[in-house]
Structures are given as C-alpha cells and as structure tokens.
Computed example of a mutant assay.
Amino acid sequence: MTSHKTPQTMKPATAAKKLGVYLEATPAEFQEGVVSRTELNTLQSDPPEWLQELRRTGPHPRPVVAAKLGISIAGLARGGVSEALTTEQIDALKENCPEWLRRERATQAEVRKETVRIKEKAAERTDQPRRPRS
C-alpha cells in the first residue's frame, strides 16, 4: 500500500506575507484560493507580472514600508502610518523627511548600535577561557 502525501498548503495571507506583498492588492484568484508550497516556490523563483508590479510600485505591507524607510514597524505606528503605502508615497516621505521619520531613524540607528555592542560583548565572553571554580 502506498501512502499519498497531500501537498502542503497555506492561506493567501500567509503566502502574501512570505512574498512580501500586500494581500488586498493581489489578484482575486490569489486572495480566494489556497497556495501550495510548490506554487509559492514558483511565485518566488519566477514571479508573474502582477507580482513584479506589486513589488515595484506597491502598495506595500507595513514590514516592507518600515524596511524601505529604515525604521521599525512600531516606528511607523508612532508616526501615524497605519495603511499600506505605494513606492511613490514612500519616496515622498523620504524626500520630505518629517520630524517623526528623522526621530525614528535615529532610534533605529541606536538600536542597531546596541545590538552590535551586545553581540561583541557576548563574543568576548565566549573567547575568554573559563577559570575553574575553587
């Protein structure tokens, strides 16, 4: 007797998240169906025109918007950005660079510095030989 493996599938929201696109901007057939692991791999390796266009112009989901602006998702919320933005809107924010964006970028830079400091400190600890307890 052979066992039939059922293909691994995911909800459209999960697939959109893995593809880095805003679900509501995807075609209806994508939103209404399920996506198999094989289909997801195909979309990633050979994206159709609609996916290429979404990645190029948006609207982009919050994680992508935050990354393009160089801030955290929480920073977006603090700045009052709660909806998906297009590439054009993101570029306009970068160009105008409002005070909240400057502040959030500075905060993000401090977080990155602190992360590096902690990693270096941890690396120093692992490099030091341990003394036996007496």
Rank of each mutant, 00 (worst) to 15 (best):
P47T: 12
V64K: 15
P59A: 04
R62C: 02
E24W: 04
T42Y: 03
R78L: 00
G79P: 06
T87D: 12
L93Y: 02
S45H: 07
V64Y: 13
G75E: 04
N41L: 10
T26C: 13
A13F: 07
L76T: 10
V34Y: 11
R78Y: 00
W50G: 08
A16H: 05
E39K: 02
L40S: 08
P61K: 11
A66R: 07
D91N: 11
A16T: 02
T26F: 09
D46T: 11
A15F: 04
G75A: 03
L85S: 12
L51E: 09
A74R: 02
K94L: 01
T14Y: 03
K68Q: 06
Q52Y: 11
S45R: 11
L51P: 03
S72V: 02
A67I: 06
K11W: 09
E24N: 05
E95S: 09
T87I: 04
K94G: 00
E39Q: 06
A84E: 10
L85N: 12
A74F: 01
N96E: 15
Q89G: 14
K68G: 13
E24G: 05
A77K: 00
V35T: 07
L40T: 08
E99K: 14
S82P: 06
F30N: 13
E83C: 12
F30Y: 05
G75V: 02
T87K: 04
I71A: 08
K94C: 00
R37K: 15
P98H: 08
V65L: 01
E88R: 06
E29Y: 15
L43Y: 03
L19K: 04
A84M: 07
A15V: 06
Q44A: 08
L93Q: 06
L54H: 05
P63M: 02
M10F: 13
P63F: 03
R56H: 09
Q52M: 11
Q31R: 14
E53L: 00
L93V: 10
Q44R: 05
L85M: 15
L40D: 07
T42V: 15
S72W: 01
V21Y: 13
Q52D: 08
A67E: 15
A77G: 04
T57F: 02
S72I: 04
V21N: 15
E53A: 03
G20E: 10
P98A: 08
N41P: 11
T87C: 01
G80F: 04
D91G: 04
P63K: 00
S72K: 09
T87W: 06
R62G: 02
V35K: 00
P98F: 04
E24K: 07
